[in-house]
Design a protein around this nucleic acid. Structure first.
Lengths: 122, 122
DNA sequence: CAGGATCCAAAAAGATACTG
DNA sequence: CAGTATCTTTTTGGATCCTG
C-alpha cells in the first residue's frame, strides 16, 4: 500500500483523503447526517430548531449538497403551507457507522487532548 | 442514546461531533497523519515535498496543532543545520484506523457520489 | 533546514430581509 | 413553512520575505 498510496498525497484532485475532507470537513454536514440517523425523518424547521446554532442559510446549503450527493432524501408535499421531509438515503446510512466510530474516538480522547492543548506552549 | 445525544446538537461547545470536525475538518491534518502512518518518521522538508500543494506556513501550522494535541511527536536535534523529525504518537496511532475506514468508504462510494452530483439540478 | 512574521486573497459562514 | 437573495463578517489558506 505504501508505494501506491504515496502518489495520492501529491496531487490534489485524486487524493482520497482530500475527497473525504472536502465533503465532510464542513461545519454542518456530519451533524445533519447523525441527527437524521437519530431521528429518522425531519422537517426543515425541526432541523433548524434542533441545531440551534445553524443559520437558515447554512442549513439550506448543507441539505442541498447532501441531497446532491445522494446522502439524504428530500420529499416535498404539495400542500400549503409547504411541508418538506428529510431522511437518510441508503448511501447515507452506510456512512453513519464510520462517522460514529470517529466520534466515539473523539469522545474517548478529547479530555486528554484538551489537557495536552492547554499545557502546550511555544 | 437518542434522548441524551440530542442535547449535544444544540449547544456548540460540548458537541462531540463538532469537536471532531473542528479538529480534523481542516485541509491538512488528516493528510499529515496518514502520511506519517505510512512513512514512520519524516522531516519537515520531506513532508513538504511529499504533500506538494501545501504551503510552508500551513504545514507548520498543521504540525504545531497536531503536536499541541499530542497526536504527533516532534524531535529536534541540536545540529546545524537543524534537523527535526515528526512521527505519530500513540494517541495519533489510535486514531488512524478510524480515519482509514472513512477514507475506505469514500474510495468505495465517491464514483457514485460524483455521478449523483453531476446529475443533480435545481 | 526549519521555521516565524507579515500581508493579502479566497472561501466559508452569518445576519437580515424577502417570497411562493 | 421552507426556503432565496444579498450583504457583511469571519475564517482559512497562500505568497513572500526574513532568521537562528
Amino acid at each position: 500500500m505504501s508505494e501506491k498510496s504515496l502518489n495520492f498525497f501529491g496531487d490534489a484532485e485524486n487524493c482520497p483523503v482530500r475527497n473525504v475532507m472536502d465533503r465532510f470537513g464542513d461545519k454542518w454536514s456530519t451533524l445533519v447526517l447523525l441527527l437524521l440517523e437519530d431521528q429518522g425523518v425531519m422537517r426543515f424547521n425541526e432541523l433548524h430548531k434542533t441545531i440551534k446554532s445553524v443559520s437558515q442559510k447554512m442549513l439550506s446549503v448543507t441539505l442541498k449538497s447532501l441531497e446532491a450527493d445522494g446522502l439524504i432524501l428530500r420529499k416535498q408535499y404539495p400542500e400549503i403551507p409547504p411541508r418538506v421531509e428529510y431522511r437518510l438515503s441508503e448511501r447515507g446510512q452506510s456512512l453513519i457507522p464510520h462517522i460514529q466510530s470517529l466520534v466515539a474516538w473523539a469522545n474517548q480522547h478529547m479530555p486528554e487532548i484538551k489537557k495536552s492543548r492547554a499545557s502546550y506552549s511555544s
